[in-house]
């Protein structure tokens, strides 16, 4: 699914990622844990295609290099990023944003666009599954939403777009325990043999609810250790300072 080889990323001559390697196979859930400033958000930005970085190396998605692809082209291919700080777009109805997004992706893939009725049916079903307040669907996108609602909205979008690779960038931060469970349930219900997740987090907490296949520790721009779920617990006990 995703193969990252020797990824190096600089911003304004400052090295953020260096000699970064990662492989995610279909159906796998990987967690990346790391302290502040270790390069976690840079990784999700680069995977999504955000500009402003000097990058070298290789990012293969389904065996094709996606370096040259624009952000939206990566989205069309099935890469989804749940943002750490979801953006507010005043005046744009949440439902309309979701429909525009879904149809843009379907259109790019040569699939039939959904009409208003088909879309509403889908969105209502998904909202109910995720216990997402349906009234919010008629509100302006993320405007006046609490932190937890914004994160749930990201998961709702993920479930509607049904991506191949979902990157969750600190989706757990700022969530209370109930919201955390809902987010985790959302992710778990989407887990299938043919789609993968990359979960970026500070804390082990989320991993109590989403069981990863692999855990990687990111420090100073590279993965210093990889292992199974037990690695997260060890990390939680020792802290990043004493970990090596």
């Amino acid at each position: 699914m995703l193969k990252i080889k020797n990824l190096k990323a600089d911003i304004e001559n400052k090295s953020i990622l260096n000699n970064f390697n990662l492989e995610i196979k279909p159906g796998e859930v990987h967690a990346i844990m790391g302290p502040n400033g270790s390069g976690k958000s840079t990784l999700s930005n680069i995977l999504s295609g955000k500009k402003g970085y000097d990058v070298s190396g290789e990012i293969l998605f389904e065996n094709k290099n996606i370096f040259e692809l624009e952000t939206e082209e990566r989205a069309h291919k099935g890469i989804f990023l749940a943002f750490q700080y979801p953006l507010e777009i005043p005046g744009v109805n949440t439902n309309i944003f979701l429909k525009t997004s879904l149809n843009a992706i379907r259109k790019a893939r040569g699939e039939k666009e959904l009409d208003a009725i088909e879309f509403l049916k889908l969105v209502k079903l998904k909202a109910r599954e995720l216990k997402f307040d349906e009234d919010k669907l008629n509100r302006q996108l993320n405007v006046g939403f609490s932190g937890g609602e914004k994160k749930k909205n990201e998961i709702l979008q993920m479930s509607i777009l049904n991506p191949k690779l979902s990157i969750l960038d600190e989706t757990d931060s700022g969530l209370d325990i109930d919201a955390l469970k809902i987010v985790a349930d959302g992710v778990n219900s989407l887990r299938k043999n043919d789609n993968s997740f990359l979960i970026i987090t500070h804390y082990q907490r989320l991993l109590d609810y989403i069981k990863p296949d692999y855990v990687h520790v990111l420090m100073n721009g590279k993965i210093i250790k990889s292992g199974g779920p037990e690695l997260a617990l060890e990390l939680e006990k020792k802290g990043y300072e004493n970990f090596n």
Binding site: E70, T71, A75, F80, F83, L87, I89, T100, L102
Partner: peptide, 15 residues
């Protein structure tokens, strides 16, 4: 950031 967010959801910059 707003533009990047919309593009991540599949919209091209003009859309």
């Amino acid at each position: 950031e707003q533009l990047h967010y919309c593009q991540q959801r599949g919209l091209n910059p003009e859309e």
